[in-house]
Simulated scan of single mutants.
Amino acid sequence: MTKTSRIVTACMIALLVSACASQIDEGVMREGGSPGFLWGLWHGFVFPFAWIGSLFDPDIAVYAVPNNGGWYDFGFFIGVTVLGGGSWFSSKKRSK
């Protein structure tokens, strides 16, 4: 497989999987005080530790519900991506 076909295949799989994602209306609050972008960013950063904790304690959650919707989701995504992808990008060797 060429590099281009791998990228296209990965994008198609991601699109297929993300098409199934939805959030119930009861999980979104438009009121002040509900977790927003910054809380989503923080929860994304601490996701690995919260996930490990959630395996042992049912009171620990990795995702805040209810939240304010899209901005919380975006912050959570950025937090997880920076933590997970940052080390991968820095480990790539530079070609001379």
Rank of each mutant, 00 (worst) to 15 (best):
M1I: 03
T2L: 10
T2Q: 12
K3E: 10
T4P: 00
I7M: 06
I7H: 02
T9P: 00
T9C: 05
C11I: 02
M12N: 04
M12F: 02
I13M: 11
I13S: 06
A14H: 00
A14N: 03
L15P: 01
L15R: 01
L16K: 00
S18E: 05
A19K: 09
A19H: 11
C20T: 12
C20Y: 06
C20E: 10
A21L: 15
Q23M: 15
D25V: 01
D25H: 07
E26F: 03
V28A: 07
E31W: 07
G33A: 05
G33F: 02
G33T: 04
S34V: 11
P35W: 00
P35C: 04
P35K: 05
G36S: 08
G36H: 03
F37W: 13
L38D: 07
L38T: 13
W39D: 14
G40P: 08
G40S: 11
G40F: 02
G40L: 04
G40Q: 10
G44E: 07
F45Q: 09
V46D: 10
I52L: 15
G53H: 01
S54M: 03
P58M: 00
D59T: 12
D59P: 00
D59S: 15
I60L: 08
I60P: 04
A61H: 15
V62W: 04
A64V: 07
A64R: 13
N67S: 09
N67C: 03
N67E: 03
N68M: 08
Y72N: 08
D73M: 12
F74T: 13
F76M: 10
I78S: 10
I78F: 12
G79F: 02
T81H: 09
V82A: 14
L83P: 03
G84T: 08
G85Y: 02
G86D: 04
G86V: 00
G86P: 04
G86M: 02
S87W: 14
S87I: 09
W88L: 15
W88V: 14
S90L: 12
S91A: 15
S91G: 11
K96T: 11
